[in-house]
Design a protein around this nucleic acid. Sequence first.
DNA 1: CAGCGGATTTACTACGTGGTAATTAGCGCA
DNA 2: TGCGCTAATTACCACGTAGTAAATCCGCTG
Lengths: 362, 362
Amino acid sequence: MAVTMREVAAIARVSPKTVSNVVNDHPNVHPDTRARVQQAIAELGYRPNHSARGLRSGRTGVIGLAVPELRQAYFAELADAVIAAAAKRGLSVIVGQLGGDREHEIELLTHGLPQTDGLLFSPERLGTEDRDLLAYVDFPLVMLGEWIFGGPTDHVTMHNISAARAAVEHLISLGRRRIAVIGAHPDDETRVMGPSNLRIQGYREALAAAGIERDPRLERVVAPWHPEDGADAARQLIESGLEFDAIFTLTDSLGLGALRALGEAGRIVPDDVAVIGFDNITISHLTIPSLSSIDPGRAEIAEMAVSMLVERIEWGAGSARPARLHKAAFDVIVRESSGGTASGTPKTSSRKSGAPAQTLNG
Amino acid sequence: MAVTMREVAAIARVSPKTVSNVVNDHPNVHPDTRARVQQAIAELGYRPNHSARGLRSGRTGVIGLAVPELRQAYFAELADAVIAAAAKRGLSVIVGQLGGDREHEIELLTHGLPQTDGLLFSPERLGTEDRDLLAYVDFPLVMLGEWIFGGPTDHVTMHNISAARAAVEHLISLGRRRIAVIGAHPDDETRVMGPSNLRIQGYREALAAAGIERDPRLERVVAPWHPEDGADAARQLIESGLEFDAIFTLTDSLGLGALRALGEAGRIVPDDVAVIGFDNITISHLTIPSLSSIDPGRAEIAEMAVSMLVERIEWGAGSARPARLHKAAFDVIVRESSGGTASGTPKTSSRKSGAPAQTLNG
DNA sequence: CAGCGGATTTACTACGTGGTAATTAGCGCA
DNA sequence: TGCGCTAATTACCACGTAGTAAATCCGCTG
């Protein structure tokens, strides 16, 4: 069994409580005593027992991060950023994969992740119809990338609509008029505030603003959002015989698949078809051609989400603070797939679409 | 505060201990009592307190997974598989990122991850010189992807040498003779058993077996192994003016970068240069051209690693069981970058290079 | 030198659970 | 009806920590 405070106390000739006081940096510990205890700690290699601490204090120092799948580059990079942000604050992160299982997601929202102080949750199957579930959540929770309207929960998300609009406006600025979009979700009425619908809305807004008539046949439904799905959708689009000179894929993963399908079909990117994605995953600047994208400010999202969660944890479970909503700033990254250079430099820095942070009443 | 056994016991008119017995499926609980308790549990929404359990039993039900960075696709996909394998066994996974920090890695090996029952560790900076550290490890530990020779620790790894050899043999079978390799590590004497050196060894063996003289200038040193680094190395190789008709990149990440650099330079893959990587990350089959690779059996590695770790945990800390070594089977996946088809079908199924599992004496 | 007040240290306890051992209930059989 | 045995339930306690409140120490004043 590991070394305990009791043993340290024996060596340092103090009470266990004094050891506790030293470990927790309490005031009013005599410097000599502190030194003696610290030496004993070093000598024995004492490390606090987290379970006991958790039992005593009700805190575990661990937060949960729930995502659909880590193998999707976007979530992997998000997890990377979240873990880094949590580490800065001395927190560990338990990563859970829900794999698009709705039951799992509901169960998680109902009970939380065991062994954690709070949860960052990036749901895939929840929607507005599940708003009521949020009312019964009795643990610190911050939702990621999804804004369930009116839910009494903190959200950290992106400017989905305006960023998507900016992406399509960029394509329009290249002179493209027949712009397809890949990644709409099927009959998604329950998730009107989901990323798919929001980005589609941005797409439509951009078309409307430019006076381009919308062609529903160019809005391709795809779920899930794996690269293969993007490739399949692009192939179907090509085979459909519809005319198009640009594609906006709702994620970079889809975009990678689309680039592949276009290449297979002999369509030149960007000359025949310009492509822009969304998420700015790492690999996008190294594909051939490199993929234009929307950088959603991942580091900012992670940092803000962890910070909000920590606040909720510190406020305590019962506190009825109003829900907050934070939308990270985004950038349009123009790369070769839409006529830019290899690496792509930020073109539009957009905090234009409203203040980055707003507070809603819960 | 959450519902406790005491409250459940009060409702069910039994003692707290009986609730405990029900929760833990003890024998000798009367069916009627069990039913009553279960109803009380449902009624109150009781959930066991993990901290208290951990304190009492010394187990947390959480394992740690330490990798360099989740944003590297290989580690993200590994983490995905590990989390899935752990979930099957009811375990949660705390993911830690060491970011190539040697001090961090040593610290981790010395103390373990707090709050966990054991650790899966994929080190980046440790080497044979750190073997002694392993002797003092006093928690369940399974090393991933790295075999520190003679360490008293379980390892789950790949057939690095023979898989690399198979990759290069594949290139040779295409008639290539000037085969470059990207990803050697600089002066890596302390990590003679590290993946880099092992794969380089496989490369050299393949050349030797084919009677091809080795050209040290074709062995490009690159660290770390991000795609950009692969691109840089390939660019330097091209600029060096050296003649080469194939590249073996020690990881797919490097390979993606190399494809990019070759494309930029106008070299046609595979006609001018055939390329094969290692790891078979998801995106490799969707690049243009799709990237040939070695599939190291990630699911098998994750499954085996978790299973070994669980065994160690169940054996208890003091048990001096011998270290075990498991090498997963691998496959050569031939795709367009070395003359195959888009998707690539397993070409060589290789358990040829020894039994998949061996046991060493610790 | 007694007395005071703040600084420092300590005893005691509870957090929620589950092991141990002891107690009680229930049943068959004489 | 009473005994013996197993099934079922319980009391008690410890796991390691930290909050609370009480005890002790120390330097100084009068």
